[in-house]
Design a binder for these strands. Structure first.
Lengths: 250, 250
DNA sequence: CGCAGAATTGATACATCTCAAGCTGGGTGG
DNA sequence: CCACCCAGCTTGAGATGTATCAATTCTGCG
């Protein structure tokens, strides 16, 4: 029930052996720049389901996801909700120069964040080009991801949407675990059916039906509700409506 | 039928009296930085309907929209198409560091672009912080716009989608014309029904029906197919499902 | 054991798509 | 000047995919 739980494994840890050191916003920083970052950084932990920031709140910090998954969601007055981003380890949270949060940030799983006090971070950005350079690169990547997701939301069927989400999660998971030995991919879904629905612009019933359909058709196997096996990734890509050969065909 | 038409009003023009000077990627540049930009810049014009860049093509340049409107679209193998961005004057086209275009860029209206040869632009970005700073800011804005659009695509009804698009165009138009004297907004739709459909994730028939419905209900008035009058902007915002008071309510 | 949250499944309603026919306005050639 | 044509658009009727409402079933846990 604590709003913030202790995180002994990360508190006061130096950046040298940080697990996201090579991919996060600080990845280009030199040693002296890291030292200045360490002065303004602190770790925070959140339990699954906790809200990290409410849309409209004053942003006291920006930061990086160290472990776990957070989601960015937008809500209409009548309660309709759309997830607009999935934040994985090394992803950046917050927008330098912005006073008020534009989205709800929610911990989808247990979450650890490396936070920087916003004002000092902003001045640090002006002084060192490496932070801004890396942030630009990350923002461009996120923009590409958002645009890819616009295609999913606007034009894909429910089945294709589910397959698209599964293939994204499977691919990310494979890149972390690097078990390149087998084509078979196995992973745990970090999202509830409802969270999947919010991401895909569907209802949770439709998500459930399509998961059952993909299982019935052998595209995926399920052990429990969350443990997913993908026996043939190319098949899944195909179900997602994506070219499995990465668009090399003329 | 010419692929590139002449643009005497812009060729060899210096940046000093450029209409998008204060908003484009070069807006923060000092005089000497502008001089270096001028060395690598050239203007190109496109007629409405022409493709500026094909997805997958080698990107020889990046650049800014000077006048007119361009669209960014993604297409699936079976032809389903989704517009993922609407590029207005001062918006930036292309991604520094990327070899191949990720989207089709199409001139929606007659279009003039200020192009920079990509390689020299990239090295200029490394040398001067002002370009990268401004590009970061613009990219963050585009990311916000993309995420707002994800809500539209994922959760809004056809009627709300149309109203959302109209209110975006109306607002942009009002900010250009600055006719703040009247609440009544009048503008010309720069998009065909089909382009609207591609942007909204609908069919053109549904777009047409909803336009008729909004007209019948007095939310908009139409003179011809494209000339739109909005007698009550708050009403339009409401139809879009957006809070007309900008979310100031608790 | 039994409860609560999460997920599945079913029946029906409804919004949007699909297919098809016709309209409109501006341009073109006879 | 008229007749025609064509792209863009509108409208209609029926099909279909997804949402909605409702009832169960699963699963983990106190």
């Amino acid at each position: 029930m604590n709003v913030v739980t202790e995180t002994p494994q990360f508190n006061s840890q130096d950046c040298g052996n940080c697990p996201i050191r090579h991919r996060a916003v600080c990845s280009r920083c030199e040693t002296n720049e890291l030292e200045r970052l360490e002065e303004i950084k602190y770790y925070r932990s959140f339990e699954a389901g906790q809200t990290v920031i409410w849309s409209g709140d004053r942003m006291e910090f920006v930061g990086s996801v160290v472990s776990g998954i957070a989601s960015l969601t937008q809500t209409m007055e009548d309660g309709r909700t759309q997830m607009v981003g999935l934040l994985l380890p090394s992803d950046f949270v917050g927008r330098p120069g912005r006073e008020l949060a534009a989205y709800d940030v929610v911990a989808t799983t247990d979450l650890v964040m490396c936070c920087f006090r916003r004002k000092p971070f902003e001045s640090l950005m002006e002084q060192t080009p490496h932070l801004a350079q890396r942030l630009l690169e990350m923002t461009l990547d996120e923009l590409d991801a958002a645009r890819e997701w616009m295609l999913v939301l606007g034009r894909k069927t429910a089945r294709e949407k589910i397959a698209s989400l599964l293939s994204i999660i499977a691919r990310r998971d494979a890149s972390l675990k690097l078990h390149a030995d087998r084509q078979i991919m196995v992973f745990d879904l970090p999202l509830t059916r409802e969270a999947m629905a919010d991401y895909l612009g569907l209802t949770l019933e439709t998500v459930s039906r399509q998961m059952s359909a993909l299982k019935r058709d052998g595209v995926i196997q399920l052990k429990g509700k969350r443990h997913v096996t993908v026996p043939d990734f190319a098949r899944l890509m195909n179900e997602a409506g994506d070219d499995s050969d990465g668009g090399m065909a003329v």
